[in-house]
């Protein structure tokens, strides 16, 4: 069981990403970034299921570029560049 988390610095950009994914039929949920991922303090991100992560990254790079992508599993977060 794992999830991907694409990070953004601001809420508006994250919402733009969520809208782009929604328009392409990729489900995503906006959330505040976990503290451990917010190197600069307070950020936002999109949760994506692993099966859709590659597709989501492709759409987001084009429509609303994200900062980093992480994979979360039982061991916690690790950076997972897509």
């Amino acid at each position: 069981m794992s999830m991907y988390f694409f990070t953004y610095r601001g809420a508006t950009e994250a919402r733009k990403g969520a809208a782009a994914l929604r328009n392409s039929g990729v489900p995503a949920r906006i959330d505040r970034s976990p503290v451990q991922l917010s190197r600069s303090g307070c950020g936002y991100g999109l949760w994506i299921v692993p099966q859709k992560a590659e597709r989501a990254a492709e759409i987001l790079r084009r429509e609303a570029p994200y900062e980093r992508s992480y994979r979360m599993d039982r061991g916690g977060f690790r950076e997972a560049p897509l």
């Binding site: 610095r9 809420a11 190197r39 600069s40 303090g41």
Partner: peptide
Amino acid sequence: TGSLSRQPEMPDF
């Protein structure tokens, strides 16, 4: 701003 809270300067975006 609810973003980049650890930095003293305003976000640049």
